[in-house]
Amino acid sequence: MNINTQLPIPSHFDSGKVGQVWRVPYQDRAVEAEDWAKQQGIQPAAEDKTRICLLIIDAQNTFCIPEFELFVGGRSGTGAVDDNVRLCEFIYRNLGAITEIAATMDTHTAMQIFHPVFWINDAGEYPIPAATNITLDDVQKGVWKVNPAVAYSIAGGDYPALEKHALHYVRKLSDDGKYPLIVWPYHSMLGGIGHALVSAVEEAIFFHNIARMSQTNFEIKGSNPLTENYSVLRPEVLQGYDGGPIAQKNDFLIQKLLDFDVLIIAGQAKSHCVAWTIDDLLTEITALDANLASKVYLLEDCTSAVVVPGVVDFTEQADAAFARFASAGMHIVKSGG
């Protein structure tokens, strides 16, 4: 990987603020970025001979700030914060080599199949988020049922159709060997602070945008109420109970990513959205040309697994996935080189 890690880190970067939320002073940073590019001899991205893309997955407050809904602490307890310190430093040190940054944005509203309000039991209770898996057996036995009240907003009032979809959905997850449907806390809510990128990461991305004259590529995922969307490349389920499409692969992004000479991947969480995205990318690569895997680099120290102490630890699953990606020809690297 042709990456120059010798650039200094601009003085505005404060690693102690990476775990906090604050407003990026865009105009100040824009002026500084233009001056920085001149001082460091950084050329516009259009002049790159080797085109490098950095794909940052879901570096949002909801996953990366300790007091937010789904903070990815990893086994250390500070995982996502530490990861983002290294990620910001990686962007600044390699500012002159990264051609484009693509940032995915997990994007949700309240009434979605993985949020509590979608489901209800006979007592009229919603499932407890992060502690409830809804299995095929649960739905078949009526342990959990679709909340009739949500049909008005997301199914045009057709409750029977929504019931059929729910049963089909959990059966499809089971048949495909995927994780069971997890009921998550409300998170990455569109319009909320949790949806926003971590301030320090957003600042680094904006600085890169101006310094390299390279528009950041923001990719929205997860807004379909009828399916999960861990991977930015495709939702978990594409078809409804009647065989009709409910979602589709992001073929445009797949092709765009594979057109780069080098693709670097970081973000959260290693065990879920990162692993799912890489797995889908590998599927596409295998179908086209297995040798393309060699252009993919995974920043292992800029991603952490989901760990809820005493409840669940996905570290081993995440490490196993990365080992499989490495066996396929992808490179597992550290952000420092």
Rank of each mutant, 00 (worst) to 15 (best):
G222F: 09
M213L: 12
I205N: 01
T277Q: 08
A269Q: 13
K270M: 15
R234Y: 02
V198L: 11
S188F: 10
G191A: 07
P235H: 00
V183K: 02
H187V: 09
A275Y: 11
I182L: 05
A275P: 12
A269M: 13
D280L: 05
F207K: 04
W276L: 06
Q215E: 14
Q248R: 07
W276C: 08
I193K: 10
P235C: 00
V274H: 11
D279R: 13
T227F: 01
P185W: 05
L258V: 15
H187K: 03
L197T: 06
P225W: 05
V232C: 15
F206Y: 15
E236P: 00
L197K: 04
A269D: 15
G194H: 05
T227P: 01
L238I: 14
G267E: 08
I220Q: 07
D279F: 13
I278E: 07
D279E: 12
I210H: 07
H208C: 11
H208Y: 12
V232H: 01
L233N: 00
A204T: 05
M189P: 04
Q268N: 07
D259F: 04
L253C: 03
P180S: 04
D279H: 12
Q255T: 15
L238E: 05
L238N: 00
S199T: 10
V201Y: 10
P185A: 09
M189F: 12
I264V: 15
K256I: 08
P245R: 02
L263R: 06
F206G: 04
I182G: 00
Q239K: 04
L226K: 03
P225E: 02
E202L: 06
G191Q: 07
S188G: 09
L281A: 13
L281V: 14
V237E: 01
S231K: 03
A211W: 11
I220E: 06
M189R: 09
S271E: 06
E236K: 00
H195C: 07
L197F: 13
P225R: 00
A196S: 09
S214T: 08
K270P: 12
C273Q: 11
Q239A: 00
K270R: 15
I254P: 03
D279T: 13
R212W: 09
L190V: 14
G194S: 05
V262W: 11
I246G: 00
G243H: 03
E236D: 08
L181V: 07
I182P: 00
Y241T: 02
C273Y: 11
L257R: 12
K249W: 07
V237D: 01
Y230K: 03
A204D: 01
N224P: 01
D259W: 08
T216S: 14
N250R: 10
A200S: 15
S188W: 07
P225A: 01
P185K: 10
K256T: 15
V201S: 02
I205M: 13
V232F: 09
Q248N: 05
K270H: 11
